[in-house]
């Protein structure tokens, strides 16, 4: 029998030809490199984690003390980002998936420009945010500027995932609702979008992960200040910037850079786990697959 079938039934009777050995070794090396990065981070950083590290303010440029205000700033930036981006993305996704004919030219234009937006390097988003939000709109280096810049950045990803989860709502529910005399806008607002909510949540979590990982776009927009922010117009340092700053600009800051890095990884792991769980339970509950890609 051929062993060359699908991933579901791959290796029974595997012949240890030269290729198999090369592939196992290659794949093993790749994983080893990644695990090196991860375990190095955990090994050096886990020791730094304590309740006081999470809650206290940084001292001596971050060499001592904790990351309390930085966590608050990070959360605020992410909240601004999602508060702007999610409603916008849902609106655009409804337009693309429900209101436009499938093969219209407008739809293609919108999608190409969103593809291009997704490909713009984050450093360019940073410059744009700096020039537009900070200077032209006069928001200065602030949490608001940073959140708005990140909103622009995650928008394509959010629109994609939202659109595909709206599309995943089977047509028969729309027909059933229409046959019950519901108008089209009500079908969308009351039935289709609510049914797509779990998919939208997953998309939002993915966007959250992306935004949390971002560094350079925030350096130019939300700034470096590591004090507790008093308002959205204060500058606030995100966790990723904190890691960068401690590693690059603060001699002797490595230990706390690793500590902050572990917190960052942990947050991303939680998000990742939540995505997996949600996708699974939702599929079990409604039979609709979440088609959001990572």
């Amino acid at each position: 029998m051929s062993t060359l079938t699908s991933a579901a039934n791959p290796s029974r009777g595997l012949r240890w030809d030269a290729w198999a050995i090369v592939l196992w070794i290659g794949a093993g090396l790749i994983m080893a490199a990644f695990l090196w990065v991860l375990l190095d981070l955990l090994g050096r950083g886990l020791g730094q984690i304590s309740w006081s590290f999470i809650t206290e303010a940084p001292e001596n440029a971050g060499r001592a003390g904790g990351i309390g205000p930085i966590l608050v700033s990070t959360l605020l930036i992410l909240m601004v980002c999602l508060a702007i981006a999610v409603p916008l993305a849902v609106g655009v996704a409804v337009f693309l998936s429900e209101l436009l004919p499938h093969r219209s030219r407008l739809r293609r234009i919108v999608q190409i420009s969103l593809d291009a937006l997704a490909a713009v390097p984050s450093v360019v988003f940073g410059l744009f945010g700096n020039a537009f939000f900070c200077i032209q709109l006069g928001l200065g280096f602030s949490i608001l500027s940073g959140g708005l810049t990140l909103a622009c950045m995650v928008l394509p990803l959010l629109i994609r995932t939202t659109e595909s989860s709206i599309r995943a709502v089977p047509q028969r529910y729309r027909l059933a609702a229409t046959a019950l005399g519901m108008t089209r806008s009500r079908v969308i607002l009351r039935l289709v979008v609510p049914l797509a909510v779990p998919g939208i949540v997953v998309g939002t979590l993915l966007a959250l992960g992306r935004a949390m990982a971002e560094t350079v776009a925030l350096v130019f927009t939300s700034g470096y200040v590591d004090r507790m922010p008093g308002s959205l117009l204060d500058s606030g340092r995100s966790l990723s910037i904190h890691v960068f700053d401690l590693a690059m600009n603060v001699p002797g800051g490595d230990a706390n850079a690793y500590g902050a890095g572990v917190v960052l990884i942990f947050a991303l792991l939680v998000i990742n786990g939540a995505v997996l769980c949600l996708a699974k339970t939702w599929k079990a509950r409604s039979g609709m697959a979440i088609t959001a890609a990572t």
Partner: peptide
């Protein structure tokens, strides 16, 4: 999903 800054740190 690991932030680039952590790859940089490593």
């Amino acid at each position: 999903g690991i932030p680039s800054v952590l790859y940089g740190l490593w």
